[in-house]
Design a protein around this nucleic acid. Structure first.
Lengths: 188, 188
DNA sequence: GATCTTTGCAAGTAATCACTTGCATTTTAC
DNA sequence: GTAAAATGCAAGTGATTACTTGCAAAGATC
């Protein structure tokens, strides 16, 4: 019956359903059920499925923006580990969002506005890397490529481990990964 | 009208449509149009959409298996570059397939049989890495994690560049990437 | 050439989906 | 307490999809 519906709850639930089912599989019926509200309410409040999904993904971005930002501290190893940990802590959702965006959202023009949601962390890390490069402590080159070398293995590891691929791949050992990364990219 | 239809052509086209549209978006109508055949023929020859898609993905795997395998040569840097090049040459299709499998095929139980298609290269590379580790030329540890460190940045780079992410990310410089990787993981 | 097989065309079925409408109930605001 | 707003329920619409059926034409085989 009539009750107050928390938009944030609906948005979070919407993203959950998207991650589990993809855009086509995230039917408005499924989303409504998962959110514990009536399907017609979704259309009354949000207009259309695309508008709901866009709003939900933008809400996800707002939540990311509200988090404590990863800051440059001057301690290279600690910053790298912090970056990778920030990513790893949100890895399941972040990897899922990244895949959702890259493979599905890109296919639906009506979701265009939500395209940039999962890449803000990457941008921010690029700025931190650039700072260390400026100080001559990391190899020169495109900062985003360096971020790729840092995060790529983590991203792919998370993706592969989240599906039944038949690959016996263990979780990544973050301190070891950072140590190897430092051997490769740090300037001593 | 009646003509000979090449299964291989249909399968390749099917995968093309899957990569462009995803599973839900790859309607049998679209696939038939793209293959230049009648939609009803798809059901006559392959039974159902799921069976067609599974057959197409398995055909993709057979094509991969038929390719010249990347072999251990004893020249570490050349092998690493060869591995990364093998992946990069097929990158657009491989990354697309990987994303398709991880994010979509995993959601449809009827496609279960096709799950392992894009991961054969990864397995093979793991074996080569293990060989170099045995010889004490690469850092010890889980070979697949080392492959992740080698391929992860390439995979993610390809994924990010294939979509409109707003990130100004350039293509990866493979020789530089190998050089940095060697600094990080090779034992001199 | 005759027969069988294959494929195309057209029409159709049942199910599902995003979305709408009408009515009733509950909640909120004044 | 009253009126307005919000939400639920049920039924429904139009479009789309995977898939089927019937007929005819073309290709392959003997």
């Amino acid at each position: 019956m009539a009750k107050q519906i928390d938009d944030a709850d609906v948005f979070t639930t919407t993203v959950d359903v998207l991650l589990a089912n993809g855009y086509a599989g995230a039917t408005t019926k499924l989303i409504a059920e998962a959110a514990g509200i009536n399907e017609v309410t979704l259309f009354r409040k949000y207009g259309s499925k695309a508008q709901l999904v866009t709003a939900a993904l933008l809400h996800e971005r707002a939540a990311l923006e509200g988090e404590k930002p990863t800051e440059y501290t001057g301690d290279l190893a600690a910053d790298l580990l912090g970056m990778v940990r920030t990513y790893a802590e949100a890895a399941h959702r972040q990897s899922g969002l990244m895949m959702l965006i890259l493979s599905e959202v890109a296919r639906y023009p009506e979701l265009q506005e939500a395209m940039q949601v999962p890449f803000m962390l990457v941008s921010r890390f690029g700025q931190i890397v650039a700072q260390y490069q400026k100080e001559g402590r990391l190899q020169p080159g495109e900062p985003l490529l360096v971020v790729g070398a840092l995060l790529g293995p983590v991203i792919v590891n998370t993706m592969l481990r989240s599906a039944e691929t038949g690959l016996p791949i263990p979780p990544i050992d973050l301190p070891v990964h950072i140590e190897r990364f430092l051997h490769g990219y740090a300037i001593r």
